[in-house]
């Protein structure tokens, strides 16, 4: 008798009007914890920052603020240090994005070609990604200082040369930070491209080969177009990472010498925690958010065009 009465299926119970648990609601229930965490720890702070940007607030007492409208944005517009920081941020972002993608792609090709030792190269290149940027910054500070490894190598070639002061020279300091950043994160881009290369359709590559395409032509006309979605994602991640860079700059140069490596995030930190101007710091933070959102929108539009 019991065997004769079939047990209701899971689908049926979900669809059951008595319980009224639709797949949509179930899905919502699953994502709700993430949505709550996202709102609490991301959206609320972002909106709070947006609000604080219109206040004169020293950051000591929650209720101790004055509404100043757009004054903080006007201050930014007239502040030469803000514009220097802005320029350095854009320079840093563009340089690191270009270099990370070129080196990441080349290393991925090297590994995908499965030449001898490519597995070791993959591990070694990815290792810096696992390190804290603070450790990387301290390490590069030592490597680049007057008695560091780079200057010792230079002295081997040119024993009479005076040490090159990479982090003390305004013309070299930003470049030095860019080099350290690229060194740390190349492995990350390499991994993205390597994953993309694994998913490329083999038949297209074989067809190109049969049609007589050489390695360069195959890369240009088959591999690169096939990697467009990966390229878009990698660029977006690098751009956002570049726009909000703080730790490497702060530890290596503290924005100096004479603000030659000051970026938006370090200037924002100075305004907030040295000058107690939370309103201005929030206005700078909003500029970083706006630039990041702008980059994401461009990425989405580019992605849509690829699909059309």
């Amino acid at each position: 008798m019991a065997a004769a009465s079939p047990r209701p299926s899971v689908t049926a119970s979900i669809a059951s009007p008595r319980r009224s648990v639709t797949p949509g609601r179930l899905g919502l229930a699953f994502v709700l914890p993430s949505v709550i965490i996202f709102c609490l720890f991301l959206m609320v702070p972002v909106f709070a920052v947006a609000g604080i940007a219109f206040l004169e607030w020293a950051g000591f007492r929650i209720g101790d603020w004055t509404f100043v409208g757009l004054a903080k944005f006007q201050k930014a517009a007239a502040d030469p240090v803000f514009w220097r920081s802005f320029t350095h941020t854009i320079l840093f972002t563009v340089a690191t994005t270009v270099l990370l993608n070129i080196t990441g792609f080349l290393y991925a090709l090297l590994i995908a070609s499965r030449v001898r030792g490519s597995g070791l190269v993959k591990s070694v290149l990815f290792l810096p990604v696992l390190l804290s940027p603070v450790i990387v910054a301290l390490m590069w500070t030592r490597i680049l200082d007057a008695f560091g490894a780079v200057n010792q190598l230079i002295s081997l070639v040119s024993p009479t040369a005076r040490p090159t002061l990479f982090l003390g020279d305004p013309d070299l300091a930003l470049t030095s930070v860019i080099v350290a950043t690229v060194w740390q994160f190349t492995g990350y881009n390499m991994l993205l491209y390597y994953a993309g290369l694994q998913n490329l359709p083999r038949d297209q590559l074989e067809a190109a080969s049969i049609d007589g395409a050489g390695a360069r032509a195959s890369i240009r006309h088959v591999v690169v177009p096939g990697l467009y979605p990966v390229i878009g994602t990698a660029i977006l991640l690098n751009v956002i990472g570049g726009l909000r860079v703080f730790d490497l700059v702060y530890v290596m140069t503290r924005g100096g010498p004479n603000r030659s490596t000051e970026v938006l995030a370090t200037y924002m930190y100075e305004q907030a925690f040295k000058f107690s101007d939370m309103g201005y710091a929030s206005a700078i933070a909003l500029v970083i958010v706006a630039l990041s959102v702008g980059a994401a929108v461009l990425r989405i539009r580019w992605g849509s065009r690829l699909h059309e």
Binding site: L144, D145, A146, R162, P163, L165, F166, L167, G168, D169, G256, P257
Partner: peptide, 8 residues
């Protein structure tokens, strides 16, 4: 001054 003050 010795060179390299800004790097130390």
């Amino acid at each position: 001054f010795a060179p390299g003050a800004n790097s130390m």
